[in-house]
C-alpha cells in the first residue's frame, strides 16, 4: 500500500475511508465495539478469506467475505444482521484495488441486508501476506421456524442442491492456470440468505439440515453429514447439475466436480414429503433455478457416500486424501 501506488496514504486515512464508505449508525459511534440488542436465539460465525487471485471473474475477495459469512449464518437457519470486518493488507496493494474491494463489500452488504458494525485494519510488510486477507464474523437472528440440526437427519430425507456445482472453484482455477476457454466462467458467489429465508418461511422444520459446500465441495460436506449422522448417503451422478464448461474443465484438470469449491450453492436435507415442493419453490427463487434432488439419506452403508454413475455403476465418494495419487494399476 502506499508505495508505488501514487499518493501516500496513512493508516488513519485508510480507516477513515472504510468508515466513510460503510457508514451506518452503529459504525458511526466509533466505539471499540458495537453494542447490539437481540430478542431471541442468535447465530454467530466467523471465517477468514484468502484467495488468489484477489479479483476473479464474477467477483473479488470482498464480496466473497461478505457472502461467505452471510451464507454461513443462513445455513444455521438464521437471518444475518451484523458483520465485523478485519483486513490484513500487504504493502504494495494499490489504493485502487483496495477501494474496489471496499465498494464491493458495501454492495454485497446491501444486497444481503446486513450492516458492518465493527472492524479493524492491519498492514504487514511486503512478502508477509498475499495482497489482502479478510476476516468477517457475523451475527444473525435464528428464524423462528428453523430447526436445523444434523440430529434431525434421518433415512428417507432428500438431498437437494440449489444450483450447478463446482463453478466457483473452476472459475478460480481457470484464471490461475490460464485456461483459455471460449466463454469465461464466473464464480457463483452470491448471498443465499433471502432465498433460504423464503424457504424457511414456507417449510420451517421440514428442513432438517442446510450446508454450504465451500472448500472440499459437495463430496466433503456429504461425507461429514454421513459421518456425523451415522447414516448413508446415496447420490445420482446424472441428477447433479454441473455447467458444461465446468464439466469440460474438470475433465481437463483431472478433477471430480464433487470435490471442487462452491460459493453460491447450498445443500438442503429435507423431509421426503416436502422435497418436491421445496425444489419447486427453490427453482423460482434467486440462485435456485437449477435446484435438483440429487439423492437421499439411507440406512444402508452408514458413514459412506455412494454415487450411482451415469451408466449405473456405484462407487464410494471418499473424503479426499491429499494428492491425486493414482490407484489404477
Amino acid at each position: 500500500l502506499g508505495h508505488g501506488s501514487g499518493g501516500i496514504l496513512t493508516h488513519k486515512l485508510l480507516e477513515a475511508g472504510v468508515f466513510d464508505l460503510l457508514r451506518n449508525p452503529l459504525l458511526d459511534t466509533h466505539h471499540d465495539g458495537a453494542m447490539l440488542t437481540f430478542g431471541g436465539p442468535v447465530a454467530f460465525t466467523t471465517d477468514s478469506y484468502v484467495i488468489t487471485p484477489v479479483f476473479f471473474p464474477g467477483g473479488n475477495i470482498g464480496e466473497l467475505a461478505v457472502n461467505g459469512t452471510v451464507n454461513d449464518l443462513a445455513m444455521c437457519g438464521a437471518i444475518p444482521r451484523y458483520l465485523s470486518l478485519s483486513f490484513i493488507l500487504e504493502e504494495g496493494l494499490t489504493m485502487t484495488e483496495f477501494w474496489q474491494v471496499l465498494v464491493s463489500i458495501k454492495e454485497a452488504a446491501e444486497r444481503a441486508g446486513v450492516q458492518v458494525v465493527t472492524g479493524d485494519t492491519k498492514v504487514v510488510e511486503r512478502g508477509k501476506g498475499d495482497k489482502l486477507f479478510i476476516n468477517t464474523s457475523g451475527l444473525g437472528e435464528v428464524h423462528p421456524r428453523a430447526a436445523i440440526s444434523s440430529r434431525r437427519v434421518q433415512p428417507g430425507d432428500k438431498i437437494i442442491v440449489s444450483g450447478p456445482v463446482a463453478t466457483h472453484g473452476i472459475a478460480i482455477m481457470s484464471v490461475r492456470e490460464g485456461l483459455a476457454f471460449d466463454t469465461t466462467l464466473e464464480s457463483d458467489t452470491a448471498p443465499l440468505n433471502h432465498t433460504v429465508r423464503a424457504l424457511l418461511d414456507e417449510f420451517g422444520s421440514g428442513i432438517h439440515l442446510l450446508r454450504d459446500p465451500t472448500r472440499g465441495g459437495v463430496a466433503t460436506v456429504l461425507n461429514e453429514i454421513a459421518r456425523d449422522t451415522k447414516t448413508g448417503v446415496d447420490i445420482r451422478q446424472a441428477a447433479i447439475p454441473v455447467l458444461d464448461e465446468v464439466m469440460g474443465a474438470c475433465e481437463l484438470l483431472g478433477l471430480d466436480p464433487l470435490y471442487v469449491a462452491n460459493e453460491g450453492v447450498f445443500l438442503a436435507l429435507v423431509a421426503a414429503e416436502v422435497a418436491d415442493r421445496f425444489v419447486g419453490m427453490l427453482q423460482s427463487l434467486p440462485y435456485g433455478e437449477s435446484a435438483a434432488i440429487i439423492g437421499e439419506v439411507v440406512a444402508a452403508h452408514p458413514g459412506q457416500v455412494v454415487l450411482t454413475s451415469r451408466i449405473g455403476g456405484r462407487r464410494v465418494v471418499n473424503m479426499l486424501v491429499g494428492e491425486q495419487l493414482p490407484r489404477i494399476c
Binding site: 484438470l253 483431472g254 491425486q324 495419487l325 493414482p326 490407484r327 489404477i328 494399476c329
Partner: peptide
C-alpha cells in the same frame, strides 16, 4: 511426471 491422478492411466 505422474500427471492428474487416475486420468493418466486412462
Amino acid at each position: 511426471d505422474a500427471l492428474l491422478g487416475d486420468k493418466m492411466p486412462r
